[in-house]
Amino acid sequence: MKQLILEIDEITEAKINAAAKSAGLSIQQWLKQIIDEKTVSTWPDSIMALPGTWQDIAFAEELRADEGQNILREKF
């Protein structure tokens, strides 16, 4: 396993510590989770399951089929 040395300011360190503690993770686990989320190269399964789960809407012509014909406007 590789090691990474990262220089950060005290405010950033406090934010990382608080976020990791809030998530119930070690700092290493929390940072790995953030890196994994930000570098994902595929869509999550929940998104991949969406296509085809909703009904397509009608085209404009179909929606206007029962409205009759437009009338000509008078010229100015």
Results as ranks from 00 to 15, higher is better:
M1A: 13
M1Q: 07
M1Y: 05
K2I: 09
Q3T: 14
Q3I: 09
L4I: 14
I5Q: 11
I5F: 09
I5T: 13
L6D: 04
E7V: 07
E7Q: 11
I8R: 00
D9R: 02
D9H: 09
D9T: 04
E10N: 04
I11W: 05
T12D: 13
E13R: 08
E13C: 02
E13P: 01
E13V: 01
A14S: 10
I16Y: 00
N17V: 01
N17A: 05
A19N: 06
A20V: 01
A20E: 00
S22A: 15
A23C: 09
A23Y: 01
A23D: 08
A23E: 09
G24R: 03
G24Y: 03
L25G: 00
S26P: 02
S26T: 15
I27V: 15
Q28V: 05
Q28N: 15
Q29R: 10
W30P: 02
L31K: 00
Q33Y: 05
I34V: 14
I35C: 02
I35W: 07
D36I: 06
E37M: 09
E37H: 13
K38A: 11
K38N: 06
T39W: 07
T39C: 07
T39N: 11
V40K: 14
T42V: 10
T42W: 03
W43M: 08
P44K: 04
D45I: 00
D45H: 02
D45P: 01
D45C: 03
D45Q: 07
S46F: 01
I47W: 08
I47K: 00
I47T: 02
M48V: 05
A49S: 10
L50T: 01
L50V: 00
L50C: 02
P51L: 03
P51A: 03
G52F: 04
T53L: 10
W54G: 04
W54I: 15
Q55L: 15
D56I: 02
I57D: 15
I57N: 11
A58C: 10
A58G: 12
F59P: 03
F59G: 06
F59D: 14
A60C: 10
A60L: 14
E61C: 07
E61D: 15
E62C: 07
E62G: 01
E62M: 12
E62Y: 02
L63S: 11
R64C: 10
A65Q: 14
A65N: 11
A65C: 09
A65P: 03
A65M: 09
D66G: 14
G68N: 03
G68P: 00
N70E: 13
I71S: 10
L72T: 13
L72D: 13
L72F: 13
R73E: 11
R73H: 08
E74R: 14
K75Y: 06
F76V: 14
